[in-house]
Design a binder for these strands. Structure first.
Lengths: 253, 253
DNA sequence: CCAAAAGTGTTCATAATACACCCATGC
DNA sequence: GCATGGGTGTATTATGAACACTTTTGG
């Protein structure tokens, strides 16, 4: 926090008498779009089934009210992520703030939305306070737009609570736009310290929703990451089927 | 707003009894970084001198509290912009939401920051409620970082209230990153319906803080805007000094 | 030997950059 | 005619995409 230059006695008195009820205040929530890749390399999102009103039994992205004075909004988002998935220290970035009138039927609720990128094995999903269920859903598209599937369950945009469909769509768009010039994709690797070019390519393919050419992907990877020192070549290989693949390690910051 | 599927009687009762005081609520403000170009084609920002505590007599970006229930945050931002500059219908986009603990000494204040791009002649600057003065400042840089100058007045980062220096710096960075692939620059033209390539080039140069090559700028302009139909050639010219320049018109959306 | 996946090399189209030079106006 | 800014053309290099081909493993 920025340091202030000598608050005067006058100012101190003002602050002590400041009436916190002077303005009509909204509630503020931190809501999180949690992305991961499933074993079939499909983009998944964590949704919870709401246990309470409003939108009881509708699916929603996890989130919760900011406890004003106790935590920053970033901390509120991190707390919600921890509550729902038992993880800490993952990619968690602010997406956008939603504050239309009537987006929550109770009262004015400003939602500060975040995007989290998490490798699936780190997720320990548990339904939080207000949630009956919490599940991962694959993101697919059909004529009517985006859909979310998990086994027999199919969720459409209109099945989602509040304006969460809009939030999710913005999160996907942002993720797609960022992937070519930001390091976001590395956060979805099973292991950032030991991965192959093909693994990283599959993440890019999932996010962009199209196949990529491996030789070309390799070329740009070597140019943009290895040559610049952001990624180091471990000089080791790993084999499964076919020719053993070279292993790389992503260096944070 | 999304339509909800048949709120049950049970849900209606819940909503009627909902206690709005259940959670500790923060205050929410909409604060605006207003950019314009002065007659010397320098990037300017509107700052106000705070008339009340906290940070009395410090310079700040204009903004004000969201009147929850009466307006959306976007509307609050538009209202603040109108109050301070008497303008409507200009570029106004959400930038980022700032919600660190202690960023406002009174109480928890979440600030939803916006960026406005306005041609200077549209600005009718007036000091609002809480402001003693409102003035445009040229944005410059020196060893200690960003500074704001207007005649003899020089404002440094530490002269700004709250975390407004951080907000302004983020706004500049975002503006710079967007200018190559978004149409933002057109909003700073004196007249979007009638402008020359050189006028647009000067805006790009100001924002990027470096000179550009006119032949190359023209080429990309013709390729990205004229050929795509986003801008039309008016087939007219305007002369001042040197060869008369061809006039273009930007088509909104 | 064969399938499968990794890795190399070549070609082509497009884009960014630098810069030499010509054009139309006012004075 | 000459200074001034507008406008054209060309060469160089970087980037993105398509694709043919080779290499190394497991079975």
């Amino acid at each position: 926090m920025k340091k202030r230059n000598n608050p005067s006695k006058e100012e101190k008195e003002f602050l002590e008498q400041y009436d916190v009820t002077k303005f009509e205040r909204p509630s503020v929530t931190a809501d999180i779009v949690i992305f991961t890749l499933d074993d079939a390399d499909e983009l998944n999102i964590l949704l919870i089934k709401r246990g309470g009103f409003p939108y009881k039994d509708c699916w929603a992205i996890p989130g919760g009210f900011l406890e004003a004075g106790k935590e920053s909004i970033d901390e509120a988002a991190a707390r919600e992520l921890r509550t729902e998935t038992n993880i800490d220290d993952v990619y968690l970035k602010q997406l956008y703030t939603f504050g239309d009138l009537g987006r929550d039927p109770r009262t004015t609720v400003i939602s500060v939305a975040y995007t989290a990128l998490v490798p699936k094995h780190k997720l320990d999903i548990k339904a939080g306070d207000d949630a009956k269920e919490a599940k991962l859903f694959a993101i697919k598209y059909d004529v009517n737009g985006i859909i979310f599937t998990n086994g027999n369950t199919v969720i459409t945009e209109s099945d989602l609570a509040f304006d969460h469909a809009e939030i999710i769509k913005m999160a996907i768009t942002r993720l797609r736009n960022r992937i070519d010039y930001e390091d976001d994709a590395f956060n979805l690797l099973k292991n950032k310290e030991k991965f192959t070019i093909s693994e990283l390519k599959r993440i890019h393919e999932t996010i962009k929703n199209r196949t990529l050419d491996l030789p070309n992907f390799r070329k740009t990877f070597l140019r943009d990451y290895v040559s610049t020192g952001k990624v180091i070549d471990l000089n080791k290989t790993e084999s499964s089927k076919g020719k053993p693949a070279r292993l790389y390690k992503y260096l944070e910051r």
